[in-house]
C-alpha cells in the first residue's frame, strides 16, 4: 500500500518523520522522495546509488523543410512555448507541457515529437537494506508533476508491502501529484498557529480528493491544545504526538534521525503503518 507523508507547511519535520518511518520499517517498506524541487531524504540516509534513469517528456521538433511558417502552432500553444522569428519556428522546451497540440494541428506534418530529459530518478539501497528512490527535477523545468508521476510508476527493487512517499510541502499541483492515488496520508504539523493554519489548508485539499488521513503533531511546546482541539472538533484522528526536544533538533542538525534520540518510538512507528491497513 502507498502512504504519503505530507504537510501544508515546510519545516514541520515531514522528511525527518519519513526517514524515521523507513528506519523503523526497513524490511517491509521503501521510500520515494517526491519533493522533486528539493529532495532531502538522501541527506539523512546512508545509502549507495545503484541506478539512474532519466525522466523524459515528448517535446516537439520542427522539420524546416516541411514548415511553411503558417503560425498555427504558435496560436495553438497555450503555454507560450512557440514563436516564429525571421524564418524559423523557435520552441522553448522548458515551457512545453508536452500536450501534443502543435504536432496535431500542423497542417503540413512538419512537427514531430521526441523524448527530452526533464529530470532524473535515482535508485539507492540504504545501509538498512531498504530502497530509496529520489526524483529530481532539472533546474529550470516547469514539469515537476511529471517527475513525481514517473517516480511513483518506477518499479521497486523488490516487492515490499509499504511504499512511503515524501511529498512536497504546500497544497499546489506538486502536492496533488504526490498524494493522489495513495491509500493513506500522514499529515505532519506542528503545534503552533502557523502549523494549524497550514494544516487546515492541507486537510481541505485531502477532503476534496477524498483521501483518508491521520494527523501527526510535531514539536509540541508548552501547554497548547491548538491542534488537538481542532482535530477533536472536526473528528480527525491524531495518531502521534512528538514533544519539542532540543536533542531532536541537534541530532537532525548532525544529519541524524528521530530514532537516534528516541529509539522507543520504533514500535510506535511500526504500528503507524499497520494502522493504515483498512
Amino acid at each position: 500500500m502507498k502512504i504519503a507523508i505530507a504537510s501544508g507547511k515546510g519545516g514541520t519535520g515531514k522528511t525527518s518523520l519519513a526517514v524515521a518511518l523507513l528506519h523503523a520499517n526497513a524490511e517491509r517498506a521503501r521510500l520515494l522522495d517526491c519533493d522533486v524541487e528539493e529532495p532531502n531524504c538522501h541527506l539523512f540516509l546512508s545509502h549507495t546509488v545503484i541506478g539512474h534513469k532519466a525522466v523524459e517528456l515528448l517535446i516537439p521538433q520542427v522539420n524546416p523543410n516541411l514548415c511553411k511558417l503558417c503560425g498555427k502552432c504558435v496560436e495553438a500553444c497555450q503555454f507560450n512555448a512557440i514563436a516564429i522569428a525571421g524564418n524559423q519556428v523557435m520552441i522553448f522546451n522548458e515551457l512545453c507541457h508536452s500536450c501534443g497540440g502543435c504536432a496535431r494541428i500542423c497542417p503540413h506534418g512538419a512537427i514531430q515529437e521526441f523524448p527530452v530529459k526533464i529530470g532524473e530518478l535515482s535508485q539507492s539501497r540504504c545501509k538498512n537494506e531498504a530502497e530509496l528512490l529520489t526524483g529530481t527535477l532539472e533546474i529550470g523545468h516547469a514539469s515537476a508533476p511529471a517527475v513525481i508521476k514517473a517516480a511513483k510508476k518506477a518499479l521497486p527493487l523488490q516487492d515490499v508491502p509499504f511504499t512511503l512517499i515524501d511529498s512536497p510541502p504546500g497544497t499546489a499541483c506538486t502536492f496533488v501529484a504526490a498524494v493522489e492515488d495513495s491509500d493513506f496520508v500522514f499529515l505532519v504539523t506542528e503545534a503552533t498557529p502557523f502549523g494549524l493554519n497550514d494544516l487546515k489548508l492541507a486537510v481541505e485539499a485531502l477532503l476534496n480528493m477524498e483521501l483518508p488521513f491521520a494527523i501527526i503533531v510535531n514539536r509540541i511546546q508548552s501547554e497548547t491544545n491548538l491542534i488537538t482541539d481542532y482535530a477533536n472538533q472536526q473528528g480527525f484522528p491524531i495518531w502521534l504526538q512528538i514533544p519539542e526536544d532540543r536533542h531532536i533538533a541537534e541530532t537532525y542538525a548532525r544529519g541524524g534521525n528521530l530514532l537516534d534520540v528516541k529509539p522507543e518510538l520504533k514500535k510506535v512507528l511500526r504500528e503507524l503503518l499497520d494502522r493504515c491497513q483498512p
Binding site: V74, F79, N80, A83, F92
Partner: peptide
C-alpha cells in the same frame, strides 16, 4: 501563466 516574454516578442 508562463512565456509572456516570448509572446510579447512575437
Amino acid at each position: 501563466t508562463q512565456g509572456a516574454g516570448i509572446q510579447s516578442a512575437q
